[in-house]
Computed example of a mutant assay.
Amino acid sequence: MFRVRNLDEMVMRLQEKGYELEGEMVNYENIYCLCYSRGAEGILVGLAERLT
């Protein structure tokens, strides 16, 4: 899991490089927005943006 500053922007950048969003972005208790992305190599990457 990696913490990022702007999750929407990071997801767009990863999609340009061939990563696909696994599932959907979720709000965890209004503290984090979380998602998972999978690259061409099959590696799953977790991303989190702190909301507060």
Rank of each mutant, 00 (worst) to 15 (best):
K17C: 04
N27Y: 08
K17G: 03
R38F: 01
E22F: 06
E20Q: 15
L47V: 07
R5K: 15
V45G: 00
D8E: 14
R5M: 13
Y19P: 02
Y32H: 11
L21D: 02
C33M: 15
V45P: 00
V4M: 08
Y19R: 03
E41Y: 04
L44E: 04
L47Y: 00
D8T: 11
C35Q: 00
I43G: 03
N30V: 12
V4S: 05
N30L: 12
K17W: 09
E9S: 11
I43L: 04
R50A: 11
R38T: 08
E29I: 09
L51D: 04
E24L: 09
E16M: 14
R38C: 03
M10L: 13
G23I: 10
I31K: 15
M25W: 02
K17A: 08
M25R: 15
R5S: 14
L47W: 00
V26M: 15
Q15Y: 12
S37G: 08
E29M: 13
E16P: 14
Y36M: 10
V11H: 08
M12I: 07
Y32Q: 10
E16W: 15
T52E: 09
V11A: 07
E29G: 12
R3Q: 14
E22Q: 10
L47I: 03
G23D: 11
K17R: 13
R38N: 06
N30R: 14
L34R: 10
G18P: 05
V26Q: 15
V11S: 05
Y19L: 02
E49A: 06
R38D: 04
E49I: 04
G18M: 04
S37E: 08
Y19G: 01
E9W: 08
N27P: 02
M25Y: 00
L21K: 06
Y19E: 00
K17V: 01
V11M: 11
L51T: 05
E41V: 05
L34G: 01
A40S: 07
K17D: 03
V26P: 07
G18R: 05
M1H: 05
R38I: 10
M1Q: 07
L44M: 09
E24N: 15
C33F: 07
L51I: 04
I31T: 12
M10W: 08
Y28I: 12
L51Q: 06
V26L: 15
A40I: 05
R3H: 14
